[in-house]
Write a protein that binds this DNA or RNA. Structure first.
Lengths: 148, 148
DNA sequence: TTAGCTGCAAAAGATTTGCGACTGT
DNA sequence: ACAGTCGCAAATCTTTTGCAGCTAA
């Protein structure tokens, strides 16, 4: 993760202000567990700044995602989760229990440079998810439909 | 894309019914453009079955995604978009104008088999997105922030 | 026949927005 | 100083749900 100083510079370099709320929210994403929801990030951010509002959390998450520091994960249960950007791994998301496993995949390591070489796209962040069933849940499945 | 017959079999093999609504919705995803929103899919589905409800579209999309026939794209503008599953490509999503480009990347071709070999995860679908700025939008950016 | 689906309309959530006050730079 | 940002609360929008009536298998 970036230091507070680095984060502040990155924000300024991108033309945004380095406010205490944004720093707190960035910290919160790292401290709130693996793949926190917006609500969880808000709770963790409140420990750092007890007056921070949910609206500010939403605004900051959008901003951080726009500049490539965090990524969004669209979730089967309807929630959106956030993840600090760490390259070279893929999230394995279980459609049943919702557990997320990280999977290291060397095939994606050259992704950013390959995209920027072969197209004119400027890569800021990535969101690489694979959906399916984790080892525990797939044993409870018959013909694709879950047993109860 | 799957034929209606194939789709019907796949649904049944997974323990679900092959209803006309589901077939229409699956068709609609292919016909509604590249990466349609739920509303767009609903509109296209209405042309095939004028009584189909939005709730049914939501239910069918979840089902199709669960069995790996479609994938979800979480979107910067808050909308969720759907994409028929086509392996081996990555979506490049522009954070500014929202345009989505497909990018063929051979590095992901072995992804499913590698995951299933190295872990106990059963892969059904995938959602591989890279966020950033497309060629047109990045020229309008100064220090990361957009000029108006 | 009957478990699974559909459509409806209402409910529940998630996310955004308008605005006056405040604050990095 | 002042453009950008914050917090609040209301508004908006997306998605889900309960249920009575259908329908695929």
């Amino acid at each position: 993760m970036k230091t507070r100083t680095d984060l502040a510079s990155t924000l300024r370099q991108n033309g945004y202000r380095a406010t205490p709320q944004r720093l707190a929210i960035y910290d919160a994403i790292w401290s709130a567990g693996d793949h926190p929801t917006v609500a969880e990030i808000h709770e963790a951010a409140l420990e750092r700044d007890p007056t921070i509002s949910l609206a500010t959390v939403y605004k900051a998450l959008r901003l951080l995602t726009d500049i490539g520091l965090t990524r969004e994960i669209a979730f089967r249960d309807g929630s959106t989760r956030y993840d600090p950007v760490v390259d070279g791994h893929i999230n394995l998301v279980c459609n049943k229990c919702g557990k997320i496993e990280d999977f290291d995949f060397k095939g994606v390591s050259g992704l950013k440079s390959e995209i920027e070489n072969r197209s004119k796209f400027l890569v800021l962040g990535q969101s690489l998810e694979v959906y399916g069933y984790c080892s525990k849940c797939k044993s409870g499945i018959v013909g694709g439909k879950q047993e109860i």
